[in-house]
């Protein structure tokens, strides 16, 4: 029993580690491809987390043997079905992300999110203060821009 509890703890730790690494990569890196790798890590972590929730001590796969329910405990089938669905959804999102990255690169010849944000800001006038996805919207920068406009 203690041995299987150890496996469960280990698996949870792996899942949480993957999730944290993925989030770290997504919010701290500036290169779009690295950010998408972070997304893949994050999704893998969440899927591992789901699988671990369904795991039972010393359990077997939820498949009947010769039409009989096996004597040993079976793992929970619902998280497994959820993970299969989540993997396919993740693949769809990643494919679309890569398509957008290809087109972005063709348009701007860069994959650095901060450079992209600066070019976007020049083109559309959107006040982007930081170059990456997660930041706090700050009216200060817009204020600065208005002051500059007044002075010119």
């Amino acid at each position: 029993m203690t041995e299987s509890a150890g496996i469960i703890i280990l698996s949870y730790c792996g899942a949480i580690g993957l999730i944290l690494l993925g989030v770290f990569a997504m919010v701290m890196y500036r290169h779009l491809i690295r950010i998408i790798f972070g997304l893949m890590l994050l999704e893998a972590g969440v899927n591992l987390f789901l699988i671990t929730i369904g795991y039972r001590a010393n359990a077997v796969a939820p498949i009947l043997v010769d039409g009989q329910i096996p004597a040993a405990a079976m793992v929970d089938p619902i998280p497994q079905a959820m993970v299969l669905t989540a993997i396919v959804i993740g693949v769809g999102v990643q494919a679309l992300a890569l398509a957008l990255v290809v087109k972005t690169y063709q348009a701007y010849r860069t994959l650095d999110t901060q450079e992209l944000a600066q070019k976007l800001a020049k083109e559309t006038g959107v006040d982007i203060i930081e170059g990456t996805p997660v930041y706090l919207p700050s009216p200060l920068a817009a204020h600065k821009q208005i002051l500059e406009e007044k002075s010119t």
Partner: peptide, 10 residues
Amino acid sequence: LREISSLVFI
């Protein structure tokens, strides 16, 4: 600010 808030989130 962004990096600090991201780290806090993590």
